[in-house]
Design a protein around this nucleic acid. Structure first.
Lengths: 252, 252
DNA sequence: ATCAGTGTTCGGTGGGGGCCGAAGTGAGCA
DNA sequence: TGCTCACTTCGGCCCCCACCGAACACTGAT
């Protein structure tokens, strides 16, 4: 980059990519870390495929998305973890007015999303924060001198069959501000691996095609046994409002 | 499709506020934490005052800016520290996702930026936070009833040849949230003067044309002697990852 | 009362861009 | 060699909005 005489142009161009309902919808969908096709994105956002194709062009040219052509498909995904952080940051900055929930279905959807979802490639929502707290409470991660895995944490991951190599640019452990909980959950390689393992072990499954996930019966048992996290489906009484209670002691 | 079924609308609206060259210019200018008038912003961005007034309306209504009317002036400033973080994040996200090859240089650059950089006209990054902590630890600033210089602090600045007059609207000392450290560093007139002095005395020099700076050998000595800040180039072992260690006792 | 200075509102203009359907391209398949 | 499918390109429509100057409103000073 050249002199910062005119960072405004860059900032505006950057923001302009997100400043459209359809493109924003694309980016939020892509926060799950998967690669989507143009057709899938078009359907998700409710626009014509031709429109989606043009938006995809802009996002790729703008550096927000990366693409991979394969056969007659064009797969799109976020260009980098930094971009995921960027989108999460913009989406998570507190608005002036709390959004008004209009319909019951929307409320349920929102509640599910708030309870447990994926953020790029790791766990977020109440579940994500609970896992982050539980790892700290159990001494698996430490916050002295930044966030790091302890030897106990490494051992615990090993017991799950997860082994990390310290190569790569991506940090092993990183904090990611949660836009529903307003607190941090775990990202980085370790966060992604924990999430991947939770899917593979059947602890969590996706709800529909979005980012929301739900905890299975096996998952409830596993989270309780492994981390001391108790899932309380009765919760606040709302049918969709499962509520997680962290048994492990923690102070805030 | 009915109502705000997801956050796409919100995200787009949020980004739309920044997605204009003139408004982006306003926001970057306001990152210094001062309150600017409409006329000042208009001149800064190079547009007619009427245009600036309308942009200010949009930014205030969108929740990005707060305003205060006083006499025949209308002062505008960022609505919250979160907004400052938002703008810094968008402005600092790498434009082109540096793929695999440029890794080493990019990593160094990023690390340097996190370690020490300027934020408008004062110090930020790990160095900025360390300086802020050291000033507090040495009794040069106090946090009782807001942030203020103590008489010892004024004397210390005087010993560096820095004298502040209390005129002007700009606050002498102000906290500025650091987006890498998630903690406050010092802004305001004093923060700017400290930064200016650090440049003039050769304690720090710019790296390239961006905002990153590095601490010189003379600077290491000065920071240690003046403030008890020890720069530890060995740090985490990574060549670019200098690490600052604050020797002065501090409590948080 | 008058004037200068600051900001707001309004009308008009022009450009950009979001949207669609239709036509075109190219891969995969039978 | 066709056929389907996924996507791209094109042309056209229309709305939004950034911009300016002019007129107006209001403050503070002479």
């Amino acid at each position: 980059m050249i002199g910062g005489m005119d960072g405004a142009e860059d900032l505006a161009a950057w923001a302009g990519l997100l400043a459209d309902r359809t493109r924003a919808s694309f980016c939020l969908a892509l926060l799950d870390g998967r690669a989507w096709t143009v057709g899938e994105l078009a359907k998700h956002a409710g626009v014509a495929i031709s429109t989606a194709s043009e938006h995809a062009d802009r996002l790729v040219r703008g550096g927000l998305l990366a693409q991979r052509r394969q056969g007659r498909h064009r797969y799109l995904q976020l260009a980098s973890p930094q971009v995921a952080v960027l989108i999460e940051t913009v989406a998570s900055t507190p608005r002036r007015a709390a959004p008004v929930v209009t319909t019951l279905a929307a409320a349920h959807k929102r509640q599910n999303l708030a309870f447990a979802r994926t953020c790029y490639d790791h766990l977020a929502g109440y579940l994500g924060v609970a896992v982050a707290d539980a790892l700290a409470g159990n001494g698996f991660v430490t916050r002295t001198r930044g966030l790091a895995l302890t030897s106990r944490g490494i051992a615990w991951l090993g017991s799950l069959g997860v082994f990390l190599d310290g190569a790569g640019r991506r940090p092993v452990l990183r904090e990611c501000l949660d836009w529903t909980e307003r607190r941090s959950h775990l990202a980085g390689v370790a966060g992604a691996e924990i999430c991947r393992h939770a899917f593979e072990a059947g602890w969590i499954v996706r709800i529909g095609s979005g980012r929301a996930v739900k905890v299975t019966a096996a998952g409830e048992e596993a989270f309780a046994e492994q981390l001391g996290i108790v899932i309380d489906p009765a919760g606040t009484g709302s049918p969709g409002a499962a509520h997680a209670v962290l048994a492990a002691a923690r102070r805030r």
